[in-house]
Design a protein around this nucleic acid. Structure first.
Length: 257
DNA sequence: ATGGTTGCAACGCAA
């Protein structure tokens, strides 16, 4: 079985012990990280190598930053969407064998009246164009990460209060559907899931305890891979650990052959 | 009722 996961760690410096614990417990083949909040010289590749993982990473000071940890080394690394001018480190692509992986930390958007919302929509437009060009090159393609989009009503704890809010606005949800339409499948929805399954809960107001969350972390697979997806789940364990990330890992398992 | 929490890095910004 091939186990592929995504996790917004909200600072790898703070969360490295959680990541090492989770790798040891769950033994994924590939783990995509977002919000590492580290420069490349500060990336803890020695500790992760010690744990048995290869690393690629694209970071910056203070904000953003993405990485991919893997049992085996990959090739053809990209750290940006071509034709999108963006100093923020939010993209990391790599190929393992015949599987192409694109790890994304899609902008949050802040609110519908923020300039950051326009930045998010423009970012999504360029991502879609890039995926449209890339997908035909690989029958096995995965895009995963923190999308900062809850695609359906069932993906927010209270659709009425979330209506028209950032992460759940029509334009963001339409952009998500456009990506699916290119030929991607939401691995989580390929399988039976518990109601009110979420991947992010605000640190405030006891949101996790009350399960007032949203599902914004996703693993999308091309049809060639989706048909081999045997399981996909949200792992809430690390949210219960001391000083957790506000996101939990999402895991997909694929039949090898 | 428009709060609250965390991480960074330096007391504001981003999420």
């Amino acid at each position: 079985m091939l186990k592929i996961a995504t996790w917004n760690v909200n600072s790898l410096r703070v969360r490295l012990p959680h990541v090492l614990q989770w790798l040891a417990d769950k033994q994924p083949d590939i783990l995509a990280l977002q919000e590492t909040k580290l420069t490349d010289p500060d990336f803890p590749f020695a500790e992760l190598k010690q744990a048995g993982y290869e690393c690629v990473f694209s970071g910056q000071p203070t904000y953003n930053g993405v990485a991919i940890l893997s049992r085996n080394p990959g090739v053809d690394v990209v750290t940006a969407i071509p034709e999108l001018e963006d100093p923020q480190r939010r993209v990391l692509g790599i190929t393992y064998g015949d599987i192409r992986i694109l790890n994304v930390y899609i902008p949050n958007g802040e609110s519908l009246v923020s300039a950051k919302y326009e930045y998010k929509l423009n970012w999504l437009l360029h991502l879609e164009r890039y995926l449209e060009r890339e997908l035909p090159k690989y029958s096995k393609f995965i895009i995963l990460g923190d999308f900062n989009i809850a695609p359906e009503e069932m993906d927010v704890h209270d659709p009425q209060s979330w209506a028209g809010q950032v992460l759940f606005s029509d334009k963001e949800r339409a952009a998500f559907q456009s990506m699916l339409k290119l030929g991607f499948n939401d691995c989580f929805r390929l399988h039976e899931q518990a109601e009110k399954s979420f991947s992010w809960w605000d640190y405030r107001m006891n949101a996790f305890k009350r399960n007032r969350g949203v599902r914004i972390d996703h693993i999308l697979a091309s049809t060639g891979l989706a048909e081999k997806c045997v399981n996909c789940y949200i792992d809430k364990d690390p949210r219960g650990w001391e000083r957790p990330s506000d996101h939990t890992p999402v895991v997909a398992e694929f039949h090898k052959d």
